[in-house]
């Protein structure tokens, strides 16, 4: 046990170095991770940059203010013979330290407003997925892809059984051994992930079935509450194929910590193939009609790549 901890802390130290200096865009949490990730969607860099900029502003102000404080504490100590001065007012200073923060805030507000406006624009989407939060699992229904309605492709997505067994009180199982390949997926894996294509503006419509949940995949850059009786909308456009993990982010009862979200982003041809399989499974016995939309989607893929270029450029500008 002890040696395990030591070994792990060595690995962790190596990972700390990579967390600090590694420039590669990662999407899922790593040990000793210190900052937010850039994420994998076109929009996810907005919160990432805002986070870094505002953190930088805060660090600079902090150094100035705390620096002044420490100089004061050093210079004006009674034990060094400091005699208290009498002044308690300085109009110029007060004007300066009221206006400078206002200017900084205006700049931050400008940046944030731009990012927020692009986030709120769900128009021009090429795919729609309905997300429903349940105690304690998610349901995904594919509503529409490239302008064609999809029916009967929908499924529940809940915590994978290995995590589920390990997380039981006094299970005696080691969370460090819950792995998919090299990646530890304890509490971050599901039985059936949401599969989506890359380079596609996907609109999510999010609602809740029982209590309020919140659908959050950090790599997409946002979370949005799943509220019963209310339908929320948001969009994403994932750029890199990969597996992106997230969790429910609104307290929703006893298993709130155990309803992860996994989004698998596939290249467009792979996605079309996957979608065709799903439709075939849910379609009635004569299999012929199911093949047609699949072929159509595959054929449509190259065309969409051009269409999707526009929102990407928008978000980056």
């Amino acid at each position: 046990m002890t040696s395990g901890v030591i070994r792990r802390s060595f690995t962790a130290a190596a990972m700390l170095a990579s967390a600090l200096f590694g420039g590669a865009a990662r999407a899922n949490p790593t040990p000793y991770q210190l900052n937010m990730e850039r994420g994998a969607s076109t929009w996810s860099q907005v919160p990432y940059h805002l986070n870094n900029i505002s953190l930088g502003v805060c660090v600079v102000i902090g150094i100035l203010v705390f620096g002044a404080m420490f100089i004061a504490m050093f210079r004006f100590r009674k034990s060094r013979g400091a005699v208290a001065e009498k002044w308690s007012h300085n109009t110029l200073l007060e004007v300066i330290w009221t206006t400078i923060p206002v200017i900084i805030l205006v700049v931050l507000a400008y940046l944030a407003t731009g990012g927020l406006t692009s986030w709120a624009d769900t128009t021009g989407s090429q795919m729609t997925v309905k997300v429903t939060g349940y105690q304690w699992k998610w349901r995904y229904d594919y509503e529409e892809y490239l302008g064609k309605p999809i029916s009967k492709v929908g499924f529940m997505s809940k915590l994978d059984s290995q995590s589920d067994q390990t997380r039981q009180l006094d299970s005696g199982l080691d969370p460090f051994k819950v792995k998919v390949g090299d990646e530890n997926t304890y509490l971050l894996n599901v039985d059936k992930p949401l599969v989506v294509p890359v380079d596609t503006k996907i609109r999510f419509i999010i609602t809740g079935a029982d209590v309020i949940h919140s659908w959050w995949v950090p790599a997409l850059g946002w979370k949005l509450d799943a509220i019963p009786g209310i339908v929320n909308a948001a969009w994403t456009n994932i750029q890199t194929p990969g597996t992106y993990r997230g969790q429910c982010a609104e307290l929703c009862g006893q298993d709130h910590g155990f309803m992860p979200i996994v989004v698998v982003a596939l290249s467009k041809p792979d996605f079309a193939k996957w979608l065709a399989e799903q439709q075939a499974k849910s379609a009635p016995p004569p299999a012929a009609p199911a093949a047609a939309p699949a072929a159509a989607s595959t054929a449509a893929a190259p065309k969409t790549a051009q269409v999707s270029a526009a929102p990407v450029a928008d978000a980056q500008g």
Binding site: A72, V83, E94
Partner: peptide, 28 residues
């Protein structure tokens, strides 16, 4: 968002004033 950011201004004034109170004092 704007209203919330605005609160930083009076709060900043308070912090700056505390630091200025220390400046030129005779501290223990």
């Amino acid at each position: 968002m704007y209203a919330t950011m605005l609160i930083a201004v009076p709060t900043g004034v308070k912090v700056f004033n505390w630091v200025s109170t220390m400046w030129g004092g005779s501290m223990t």
